[in-house]
Amino acid sequence: MKITYLILGVTLIALTSFTRENFNVNYEKKMTPTEQTSDGEKLISKMDCVGCHKLDKKLIGPSYLDIAKKYPLNEKNINYLTNKIMKGGSGVWGNIPMAAHASLKKDDAKSIAKYILSLKK
């Protein structure tokens, strides 16, 4: 009986090693161009932004959708929010100040601002 199982196991291993199937299939979801993650979205997910902001709910700070509703997507507002992200501030959305992100590169802050303002529906 042991020999039967041994032969069956060796046969099974031999047969699977000769298949032409690619078992290293990447099962990641294929995104359409409109669903691709932007640079700003990637930066937000790696930073401390998620501690105070959510996409659709107010936490400590406003939701990204509320920000997008308040500021139209234009160069003036992108620059304003870029500076706000880098320098911090308070008073616009309440008394709790937003922390400064002075070590953030200006281009990265601009990508974040563009992403947030692009959320307006």
Rank of each mutant, 00 (worst) to 15 (best):
R20S: 12
S45G: 08
N22T: 02
M86P: 00
A99D: 12
M98N: 08
F23S: 03
A113N: 04
F23E: 00
A102H: 15
D107I: 09
L73R: 13
I60L: 09
E41V: 00
T19Y: 08
H53S: 06
G51C: 12
I44A: 06
I112A: 02
N24K: 10
N79C: 03
T16P: 00
E75K: 15
R20E: 10
S63G: 06
V50Q: 13
K54F: 00
A113G: 05
K69E: 06
V10P: 00
M31H: 08
D66I: 03
E35D: 04
V92N: 01
F18P: 01
N95R: 14
L104N: 09
Y64H: 07
I85H: 03
S63N: 09
K76L: 06
M31N: 06
K54V: 00
K2S: 09
A100R: 15
N26D: 08
K121E: 12
T34H: 11
L65E: 05
Y115F: 09
I96N: 10
S45N: 14
K57S: 10
I13N: 02
K76V: 06
K54I: 02
S38F: 11
H53T: 05
Y115G: 04
A100H: 15
I60K: 15
G61Q: 10
G40W: 10
E21D: 13
L43C: 04
G51R: 15
K110E: 07
E75I: 06
K70L: 02
Y115L: 04
E35Y: 06
V92T: 09
Y27R: 08
L65V: 08
V25L: 07
M1W: 11
K105V: 01
D48R: 15
I116W: 07
G40T: 05
S118A: 09
